[in-house]
Design a protein around this nucleic acid. Structure first.
Lengths: 125, 125
DNA sequence: GTGAGTACTTACCCAAAGGTAACCGCTTAC
DNA sequence: GTAAGCGGTTACCTTTGGGTAAGTACTCAC
């Protein structure tokens, strides 16, 4: 049973905890592309070249590496369909969808941030 | 087939937009330490050595670089107090606090993720 | 058989991130 | 004087990220 010993020391443990949580999260979600890639596949399953078109700037090599990495960590699934020629469709797993709130907040913040950057650009010029 | 009913489910345009937002957000929040550092200073203002103790593993060099970077981007403020010896206190700005929801979600996810990793470790052994 | 498309892999290279360790200038304590 | 603490800087090095370009294996259309 947890006992609150001191009301004047409210969240110290929680603070250290959330710091650790964030560091752990960042450990698996590191890099320039991982979160964007997950978001893209959460929105809809796609094939290799479709992803590469959507994430403009990513090279085939890096995309292949990131896809492998995310598959290993159970964020995405690689489906091979025996059509001719074979279709390889990447889809987000349920685990990717647990990031929905994170991605939502990040997107909202990114949008607002872009506005702020625009404004400071205007001030500069 | 299970249909996820969600009012926030974005349409195609919004998908591309949110992808761009996330990429923009990650552009300023890149690296291993930036979000953790912001969180640490949002929780309370600190001096250099205090931060280094809390973010175990970060080197003085990297910390100095990240602090400069975050100050340039208006996430933190460097206050010099003319005590003897001078105290240099870093504090989060209001702009850092706009990341509150992002950090909250990331922390929640990181906690849940750690649980999941623990479970798959048990399965392995 | 030639070319195009899909889904990569491989080799090569550069730049940036990040770690280690030493050092700096300042001040207080012993 | 010497050591220790603060808030860094500097030099040096390794690791990682990530880009380019070429090649591979397969199939289909011509």
């Amino acid at each position: 049973m947890k006992v609150i010993k001191d009301e004047n020391l409210p969240d110290k443990e929680a603070c250290a905890g959330s710091l650790k949580n964030v560091i752990d999260a960042l450990y698996v979600l590191n890099g320039k592309w991982k979160l964007a890639l997950i978001l893209s596949l959460v929105q809809s399953s796609k094939r290799f070249n479709e992803i590469q078109q959507e994430l403009t700037g990513i090279s085939a090599k890096v995309l292949a590496k990131e896809l492998k990495d995310l598959e290993l960590n159970d964020f995405i699934k690689r489906n091979v369909y025996p059509t001719t020629p074979v279709s390889i469709i990447y889809e987000a797993t349920g685990y990717s969808r647990t990031l929905k709130n994170v991605l939502g907040e990040l997107s909202a913040w990114g949008e607002q941030h872009r506005e702020k950057v625009k404004q400071s650009m205007r001030k500069q010029s």
